Simulated scan of single mutants.
Amino acid sequence: MRRFARPKPLIQILSVIALIALIAIGQYLRLFERAWFNLHTLWQPVSSQSMGLDKYQVVLEAQEIAGLDDDISALTYDPVRRSLFTVTNKNSELIELSLDGRILRRVALVGFGDPEAIEFISADTYVVTDESQQRLIKIHLEQGTTFVDAADAEQMTIGVHLGGNKGFEGLAYDSEGKRLFVAKERDPMLIYEVRGFPHFNPEKSYSVHVINNPKRDAGMFVTDLSSLQYDERSGHLLALSDESRLIMELDVNGRPLSTLSLGMGRQGLKKNVPQAEGIAMDDDGTIYLVSEPNLFYVFKKPAQP
């Protein structure tokens, strides 16, 4: 009887190395935590408090935002104007968009360095981030404003984890709690909670408190943060990851509740969202998304029967 040859030691060693590499890649991409979450949601009843991101479907996919030479970054919804705002960081501009992705106006940003995010605070008031210097800049934008100079604006710097190009990528604001959430992209990936900025009454003294929770943030099974959105109704935070092609819903304790995948074949998408940069949500719960190179998306949750 002919004996089968045993695998050579070299093949065994290469197989072990390949397995270790796959495990390392899976760990880096947080695939195991993501798979466990997806498996857990199969038998765990969906929380009544959850927004149910997995139910959302794309209704406008990859529409080009015409008329822009530079890539846009970030997105916020203005409930007063019922429009969206984004920024460009090469030739710095603030861009107002309609809810179907058309440019309504452009405002030059002077002295803002590397603007990466914008967030609506109240009527005519916004906060813009400067990623390179980790500045938060409060601006006023009236109907006739044609440019905004950072030198004339109230601003603050969060001088932690300085260096590189992995700074502030996202903002979200809790108008009731007067909290500004600031996302640091990665290395390390963190969400700061800023209280006391922006300041609303110049006649009163104030102090600024910056809080972060690395243990909570480590529970997010994504590899980077691109944008944030705060839902006033539930008190939950939406975190957008470009690299992981995912939107996560986090409860008040930072626990993941639901996800919206930005991959081909999910949520009705015909193609992958190439590089998601900004997320916003209107009063009806419609989710708007921008992706490089200047693509516009709209997701809606179907009405319940």
Rank of each mutant, 00 (worst) to 15 (best):
S244W: 04
V80F: 02
V182F: 02
S226K: 01
H140F: 07
L97W: 01
D70T: 13
P115G: 15
N213R: 10
D100I: 02
L250D: 01
A303V: 14
S291C: 09
I17P: 04
A21Y: 02
A280I: 08
R255L: 12
V210C: 10
E116I: 06
E154T: 08
D284G: 12
R82S: 15
E193I: 13
I11E: 13
L180P: 00
A123Y: 00
Q275S: 11
L289Q: 02
A183S: 13
S205R: 03
D282H: 05
E131N: 04
A62H: 05
P198Q: 07
R255C: 08
L39V: 13
L97C: 12
A24T: 12
M189F: 05
R81T: 09
P256C: 10
G164Y: 04
H199C: 05
R179T: 15
E64P: 13
K184A: 11
K204R: 08
S92F: 01
S122F: 00
Y56D: 12
N212C: 11
P305K: 13
L257G: 09
H236L: 07
G285D: 12
R195S: 13
T145G: 11
A239W: 01
L104W: 01
P79S: 15
P214M: 11
S234C: 08
T157R: 05
F181R: 04
K184C: 10
S83E: 04
K166S: 09
G254Q: 07
F200L: 12
L136H: 01
F147Y: 08
F200H: 05
K184W: 00
L238Y: 08
F168I: 01
E33N: 15
K166G: 02
L53G: 04
A62I: 12
E96D: 04
I95D: 05
D54G: 15
H209P: 02
Q44V: 13
P214E: 03
I103F: 02
P293Q: 10
G111V: 06
N38Y: 08
R179H: 12
A62C: 09
S175G: 12
M189N: 03
R245Y: 02
D187L: 10
A62M: 14
